[in-house]
Structure formats: C-alpha cells, structure tokens
Computed example of a mutant assay.
Amino acid sequence: MSVPAPLTGVVPPVCTPLTPDGEVDTSSLVRLVDHLVTAGVDGLFVLGSTSEAAYLTDRQRVLVVDTVVRHVDGRLPVLAGAIDMTTPRVLDHARALADAGADAAVVTAPFYTRTHPAEIARHFELVAGGCGVPVFAYDIPASVHTKLGADLVLRLAGEGVLAGLKDSSGAEGAFRNVVLGKRAAPGLAGFSVLTGSEVTADAALAMGADGVVPGLGNVDPAGYVRLYRACREGDWARARAEQERLCDLFGMVAAGDPARMGGSSAALGAFKAALRLRGVIDCAATAEPQIPLSPAETERVAKHLSTADLL
C-alpha cells in the first residue's frame, strides 16, 4: 500500500526476534506483527535500531522485510530501514527492500566517512531518485555522529526528496523547528514529522508531531495507541497520565548492569525479554556481540511488566 501523506499515529520500530543460534525467527516475528496490529498501530518500521538492523546480514534484512510485508498484506504501511555507511550501499539496501514490497525507505546520513551538509543533501537526493519508494530521513546522531539540521530537512522536504522525518536525536528544540517550519509552509502539509522518543511522546504530539515511533511500543503498543488518541482528542490530562505510566515501564531498559553491558544491549535485551515474558516471541536472544540479560536482570524486567499490569 502507499504511505499516507502525512503518515500519522503509532508506528513501532519492530524488534527482530532471533533463534538461539542467531537466525531470524520468522514465526515469532509474525506473532509480534499480530500483537502490534491487534493493538491498533498505524504502521510498522522494520530494520531500524530497535530491529538490530546494524547486526543483521543482508540476507536476514531481506527476510525480515519479506516476512512482514507478506504477513501484513497491505493492511498497514511498512517502512524499512536502508541503513549503511555510504550512498551506493544504501541504494543497494533501498532497492532490495523496495523489491521485497516495503512502502518506504528510512535512511540516515552517511557515516564513517566525514561529510559536508551538501554531501548529505546529495546522499538523500540520490537515494530518493534511485530506489523507487518514498524516503524518510532518520535523524539519529548518537549512531551516525551527524545531526540533521532543520533547514536541510525542510529544504529537502520542499523539493520532494523527503517524505518524512523520524527524529531520534533527543533535541527537542530542533524538532520543534521542523514542526514550525512545516506549519509555515503550506506545501509541506503531507510531510510526516515523527518522534522516536518513548518518554516525551506527549510533548512531541503537543508540539505538532504527526506520530510516534517508540521502541517500547513493541512491549505495550496499546499504551501508545491510547496516548496518541488522548493527544488527538485534546485530553492532555489523560495523555500525561498514560505517558507517565509508559515512562515507568521504560525503566526496564536499566535492568541490565552497566558495569558489564552497554546501553543498547540492556535496552534491546529488556524489550525482547518483555516480549518473551508476555508470550509474544519464543526467545529473547539479541544479536552478537551484544551481551544477554541474566536471569536476575530478566526478573527486573518482569517486575516492570507486573507493575504495568502487562503480566
């Protein structure tokens, strides 16, 4: 199906369930998709950071997209990350995901190499012109070490290069500049501005964001659907209460001991442990070389679920 312009609502970045030997568990992936669709989400984003795209082989990436697209069967738009270091490699990924049936490609700035803003603009122009599906910019400076400026994003949106922005920068002032720039330009009404924050989704929606892309939405998609609907109905007290409940639940990402694992291992391990505890996926394995949660750390995740009435 085509991507609505703008894309609105809750678009979870879908976890990639793995088997104990590190292969994609397609049966669990299908159940996870059903879990999200049943909760009322508005789209799916595969092969992002929460999907562990950086750890997957090219074969596994295509398998994820193909599995999700086939199972969704046009019920929701499927966005897929085409994330790699430089333009030719991103184009290869973007063309592969388009061939697999994804409705849009989500693309970061180039990384590893040092790039000028003019080169970043050229990167998005070349990808958008060569992949055959709409392109969403993925602003995630913690991973690619480049912050996409609001002026650049808005210019590329106005030129028809970008269909939307997924902002995981945490820079709320810069995010607001994009929202305000869109509002001031009638030609950008169809441009999608999405936040990747789990804990300030209500604030972003109050600013004027079109939707939310929360990793925690794998664990509690219904909570984010309720939050989004409360914001759209102008019931800010109900939205704040739901957001604060989700903030408490998000505390699960600190279950892993920082003395022995990185933040990504802890967060992704917590999401997968929660999904396994909820009976959605079969195995909580994360991709190598990430460090798995211990039984005691998994028990901390379970306590967060119990407090949120999700167990």
Rank of each mutant, 00 (worst) to 15 (best):
P221D: 01
A237E: 14
E172M: 15
K166C: 00
G215R: 02
T200N: 14
A128R: 00
G132H: 07
F175A: 02
P134C: 10
C231T: 04
A241M: 10
S168L: 10
L152E: 06
L162P: 00
G208H: 05
A184M: 09
Y224S: 06
P186F: 08
G181Y: 11
A157S: 09
L180W: 13
K147N: 11
A137E: 02
G164L: 01
Y224P: 12
A239Y: 01
S143G: 13
P134I: 08
V199A: 15
L188A: 05
E198V: 13
A150T: 05
V193W: 01
D151R: 10
A230E: 02
S169P: 06
V213W: 01
D210N: 12
C131T: 02
G190C: 02
V193L: 02
N177P: 01
P134H: 09
V135H: 03
V225L: 06
R232P: 01
Y138R: 06
N218D: 13
G196L: 13
G129R: 10
A222E: 14
G158V: 03
F124K: 02
D151A: 15
Y228W: 14
A128I: 00
G234M: 02
A239E: 00
G196H: 11
P141F: 05
K147M: 12
L165H: 03
L188G: 04
V178L: 03
L156M: 12
V144D: 06
G187T: 00
A157N: 00
A157G: 10
R155Y: 02
G132C: 11
D167I: 08
C131Q: 07
S192D: 07
A239G: 04
V161P: 01
L216K: 01
D202G: 12
R155H: 12
A239T: 04
E233P: 00
G208M: 07
G129W: 04
K182Y: 00
A241I: 08
L194Y: 04
A171F: 14
P214I: 08
L148H: 04
P214Y: 09
N218W: 11
A174I: 03
E233N: 13
I140D: 08
G170L: 10
H123I: 06
V212C: 11
A128Y: 02
E125Y: 08
A142H: 14
T146G: 02
P134Y: 10
V161W: 00
V225A: 02
G234F: 06
A185C: 13
R183W: 13
E198Q: 12
P221Y: 00
R238F: 11
S192H: 03
H123T: 13
F191Q: 11
P221V: 05
V212L: 08
R155G: 10
L188N: 08
S169K: 10
T195M: 13
A206H: 11
P221A: 01
R122P: 05
